[in-house]
């Protein structure tokens, strides 16, 4: 049985904002299936009582003072924008009010 279906792969592509063609989806489905089957080995060892680690170092409480630092100029901020107008980033029409 495969670890991941092609329909799931297509769903992941939409979640990841990747417009993949049919061929690419087929190819990826096979590869992901192979990789997921291999990495599923992590489920063999970790018992319930093992705490998870998200950060390599056990640091806590790193804060900065509430002080201003120089911002970019609007010209710098917009220099790399694919499109700009009225000192704002111009983006294609947005479909939803909120994702």
């Amino acid at each position: 049985m495969s670890a991941i279906t092609r329909a799931e792969v297509a769903h992941l592509a939409r979640l990841s904002r990747l417009a993949l063609g049919e061929d690419e989806l087929d190819h990826l489905a096979a590869q992901l299936d192979q990789i997921i089957s291999a990495v599923a080995r992590v489920q063999e060892v970790a018992a319930e009582d093992i705490p998870p680690t998200s950060h390599a170092l056990p640091l806590t409480n790193v804060y900065r003072a509430d002080e201003n630092r120089p911002s970019l100029t609007p010209e710098q901020a917009l220099a790399a924008a694919p499109a700009a107008e009225q000192q704002r980033f111009r983006v294609p029409r947005i479909l939803d009010e909120e994702a």
């Binding site: 002080e67 201003n68 120089p70 609007p74 000192q87 704002r88």
Partner: peptide, 16 residues
């Protein structure tokens, strides 16, 4: 980040 938070500032002047 250290950018200002002034309401109503000119667009994209408080960004880094």
């Amino acid at each position: 980040c250290g950018c200002r938070t002034v309401f109503g500032a000119e667009p994209n002047t408080q960004v880094c």
